[in-house]
Each structure stands twice: as C-alpha cells, then as structure tokens.
Design a protein around this nucleic acid. Structure first.
Lengths: 190, 190
DNA sequence: TGTACATCAGTGAACGCGCGTTCACTGATGTAC
DNA sequence: TGTACATCAGTGAACGCGCGTTCACTGATGTAC
C-alpha cells in the first residue's frame, strides 16, 4: 500500500536525519545539498520538493535536534529519581564514543554555526530553557545556578574534547566533567 | 624612513588582525578574502603577497590567537598571587561586553570551525595545555581536575551565552560561571 | 480484468553567482651615477 | 642636486570551480471507464 503522502513524509524524514549527521560532523557550510541527498539515497534535484532552501533545512535540523534533546532530558528528570536521571543525562552527554563519532549534542557541533545565523535563535533559547529546567530538577541546592554551570561545563567539555588532537587529553576533559558533576560516582567510575 | 621590509611586516600584521576579528565574528567560511583585505585597508589582489592561501591564514589566525591567550594566562599566573590571577583570567574571559562583541576567546568562536580542519590541531592542543597549566597554578586542591572543569565551564558558558538570543539568559550563564569559579567574590560581585 | 490517462516523487543536465586565486600592470620608493 | 632605472607592495580585471537552485523530463503508482 504505502500511500504516496506517507512515502513523502518518510523521505523528508530521511533527508532530515542525513543532514543531522552530516552537519554535525562537517558543519553546515562543509556539506552540500548533493551530499545530504546522496546520504539519504536520492539525487540532489529532488531536494526542493521537501525544503525551500538549504538554509531552511539547516534551521529545521538544529531546531529538531535540540528539541529532541530537551524533551528527552525533561522525560528523564520526571520519570527517574534525581540521581539516576542526572547520571543518565551526564554519562550519555559525555560519552567518549559519541563525542568522537560526531553524534553528539548539536550545541557543541553546530553552536557557533547557528549563533551566526538569525534563523531559529528563538527556538534554540526555548530548548536551552528546557534543558536547564530538566537539569535543575535533578540537582540539589541552588538549582538554577547549578543547572547553568552544569550545562556550561558539559558543553565546554565536549567542545574541548573535540578540539584536542590527542585522545588522552580529550578523555581527560570528559572524565573531569563527569567526576565533577557526579561526585558520588567519582571514586568508582575510574 | 620606514624601510620596505618593516612596512611589509606591518601590513601582514594588519591582515592577521583584521582576519582575527572578522573570523571570530562571522566564522571562517563566513568571511571572504576580499572582506579581510578591505578591513585591513587594502584590495584583495595583494593578499597572496602575504599568505599562500585563505586556509593558511585561517590556521595562522587561530594558532596566534590561542597562543596569545595561553601566554597571557601563564604570565598572570606567575606574576600575580593565586586569587588575583584567577579573578583576572575569569572575569576577563567571561566579560559580557567582549562576548557580545565577538572579541572573545577563539576557542568559543572558532572551536568547531577549527576542529573540522586538519591544520594546526597540534598547535591548538599545545595552547590548551598552556591554559590548563596556568589555571592549575591558580587553583587549590586537585589542580588538574579543577583546571579541566574550570576551562570547560568557561568555554561552555561563553558558547551558550552567544547562542542564547535573550540577553538576560546570556548574562545568567556568564554570571553563574563566574560565581562558581570565584566563590569568595560571589557575594560582592553582583 | 484490461487499457488509457493523470499525478507527482524523483532525475540529472544546466544555470549563475560567489569567492578563492591569478596575473599584467601601476606607482611609489630607493639606488646609481 | 638631478635624472634614469630597478624594485616591489599593491591594484583591479579576469578566470574557473563549487555549489545552491531551477527545470524539462521520466517512470512508477493510482484512478476512470
């Protein structure tokens, strides 16, 4: 069966997925429309049946990825107890494999790209607020302050881990951030 | 007098300076050779008298800016007492005006750009180590661990402050990081 | 059930703009005599 | 001191490639009769 409308939605989704991976790995300016379409198993001409421009795709990709992360954190922080939620969020975020492969948080890979484009700045702030809320729910004490510094530390650690050419230094950044954010676990993690 | 060799060096320096500012503000891919040369008060044709390619310029710019920061931190950490050095480094790094104007640390504005280019990754790691050493010298206790998390937090706070479209949220990130890193001052800073 | 037609996602050649790079030329400065 | 020449940083027109975008066409699927 697979009625045409359904098929169309699936194709669009494949393009978004392909772009999400490629943009995070090589940057928005580092990937052409043809590469995205090839990755999605199509040819470049069909792109404009699904998106009005590359810029629009970039905006939707970063927005979608960020919202997905924010929603996931919100769910975790509501459905697990504090410590378990925090540990899940932090260890997943700082996972060395994901960082190395580029499948990591769009804040760290597209942050500067997106900061320079006007498009969807507002949606990004919304996602940021969602992430901060979720983190605050998992943290004791001065929640707002601690959520702000925790998010900063996670983002910075991933940015720096990707920047260091040396795997050992990369790992140090990720490990130090994890130990600092999950003090109880610090002793047995390593 | 101003012998020609001297003049040549100065011109080259002007180009580097112009590129440093423009690249940090708009990204490497967001600025053309012609824009850099115009900012330096020249026309684009002369660029290749000073640099073999735009890519080479980008590598030298990021390397120079990072080394400059690393050296400055090293000097501060050696010539001031601990608390004063730390306060100078942190408040300067997290200065809201500099962040907003784009004259901030190249780690936060060129980080992802540079992470994707092979050029000069090694020099960058060198600068990172220098910054970590300097920070460690200003911090008590487990110096290495604290230097890693402090640098991560500063970098992340600036990245997030630039990403947030809302000035209040921006300021929150910078303030929270400063308060966390300079606990003694926290009460009187605000 | 079979044939003719309509729809539309996808194809791939072509277009055109932006930008990195090249090159013949200019004009200011320094040197030789 | 003045004139002729050499040097070379800088100019700006031109080139060509990459890439975003367009468009005439294809071919598979669904509908009418």
């Amino acid at each position: 069966m697979a009625e045409p409308a359904q098929r169309r939605v699936e194709t669009r989704q494949r393009i978004l997925e392909a772009a999400g991976n490629l943009f995070r790995e090589h940057g928005i300016d580092g990937v052409g429309v043809d590469a995205v379409m090839k990755q999605a198993g199509l040819t470049h001409g069909g792109f404009y049946l699904h998106f009005p421009s590359k810029e629009a795709l970039a905006a939707e990709v970063s927005q979608t990825l960020l919202e997905r992360a924010a929603v996931k954190w919100q769910d975790l922080s509501r459905n697990l107890d504090r410590d378990a939620a925090l540990e899940t969020i932090v260890t997943h975020y700082l996972d060395a494999g994901r960082v190395a492969s580029g499948h990591c948080c769009p804040l760290t890979t597209l942050g500067t790209d997106v900061a320079r484009r006007t498009t969807s700045r507002q949606a990004i702030s919304g996602a940021l607020r969602g992430m901060l809320d979720a983190l605050g729910r998992c943290l004791p004490g001065r929640k707002r302050q601690r959520a702000l510094t925790a998010l900063s530390m996670m983002v910075g650690a991933v940015v720096l881990a990707r920047l260091a050419d040396d795997a050992a230094l990369s790992a140090e950044f990720l490990q130090a951030a994890a130990d600092s954010l999950l003090p109880v676990r610090a002793s047995r993690t390593q």
